[in-house]
């Protein structure tokens, strides 16, 4: 009994662990929702690129204003939106297609970020920055996570039908007077907000895992949009809890631990999903 207690409850007798877990839970809820749209709109790789592109903004803010949450937040937000809008403009004004534009811009941004980070005072731990450290979640980080998560959930509840329609059939959405461009821009902004807020627990490079993996796992199980959203959120919560516990006991980077847990769920889903899993497909003799 006491072994179980040590394993599951003791870690959360520490204030910082409670903060870290709560922050991960909050962003698991919003990230689980966002991830579904990323997966269904085939924006998974773009989301990944977007998360890397936050780095220079965050590093620059750190150099200029120190580690204040607000500065890091706006730095990351500016860099992310610059990448998103920049590549949209590039693909519209030049011959370069959107994926190549995004890929090129984000790698330049990421390099600038790495360059800036190497100029940061040595006490900054690069690994924490890239891969997350749940110990470092400050009360202001937690407040940011709360606000971002609440805004994201509110947007999904209020605009559920627009989001579903824009994700499933943007042409029909437009034919019925929907504002597709607005939904898309709002969605990108929400993604950047969540990535920045998840940076402390998950790390810049791994934050997207908290959004993407639960959603793509849920995609393998669900035949309805609503159930996919709910399943995705539940998986994100579960993965955060188990991941943070493992990170505490094994002394791993928290972002990596969470992503590995969610990764295990994804691999299991991809193999064993009764309708859409690999084993079922192989048994049925090919796809379809």
């Amino acid at each position: 009994m006491s072994a179980l207690h040590d394993l599951l409850l003791a870690p959360f007798s520490y204030e910082f662990m409670r903060r870290g877990l709560l922050s991960a839970f909050l962003l698991g809820v919003s990230g689980g929702l966002l991830g579904c749209v990323l997966v269904l709109r085939r924006l998974a790789l773009m989301g990944d690129a977007l998360s890397h592109s936050l780095l220079p903004g965050i590093a620059a803010a750190w150099l200029l204003f120190g580690t204040s949450t607000a500065a890091l937040f706006f730095g990351g937000l500016a860099a992310g939106l610059l990448t998103a809008l920049g590549s949209a403009l590039l693909s519209r004004l030049t011959r370069v297609k959107e994926d190549a534009a995004f890929g090129s811009l984000f790698i330049v941004f990421f390099a600038a970020g790495v360059a800036l980070i190497s100029k940061l005072p040595t006490r900054v731990n690069l690994a924490d920055f890239l891969f997350g450290n749940v110990l470092g979640v400050s009360p202001s980080d937690l407040r940011l996570a709360l606000v971002v998560s609440a805004v994201t959930v509110a947007v999904f509840v209020l605009f559920y039908r627009s989001i579903l329609l824009e994700t499933f059939d943007p042409v029909f959405h437009r034919a019925t007077g929907g504002r597709g461009g607005l939904v898309h821009l709002g969605f990108l902004t929400l993604t950047v907000l969540n990535l920045v807020a998840a940076m402390q627990t998950m790390g810049v490079v791994l934050a997207l895992g908290l959004f993407l993996l639960p959603a793509v796992s849920a995609y393998l199980w669900c035949d309805r949009f609503v159930t996919m959203l709910v399943t995705s959120v539940c998986l994100a919560l579960l993965g955060s809890l188990v991941g943070i516990l493992i990170s505490f006991h094994a002394g791993l980077a928290s972002g990596a631990a969470v992503v590995l847990c969610l990764g295990a769920v994804f691999v299991a889903s991809a193999l064993f999903s009764p309708r859409y899993g690999a084993i079922r497909t192989l048994r049925a003799g090919g796809k379809g």
Binding site: L40, R161, L164, F168, D169, F172, D223, R224, T227, M228
Partner: peptide, 17 residues
């Protein structure tokens, strides 16, 4: 897409709600 037949047909009513 994770959506049922009814789910798609309901979309026809979205603009009116």
């Amino acid at each position: 897409f994770p959506i049922t037949v009814r789910g798609v047909v309901e979309q026809g009513r979205y603009p009116h709600v």
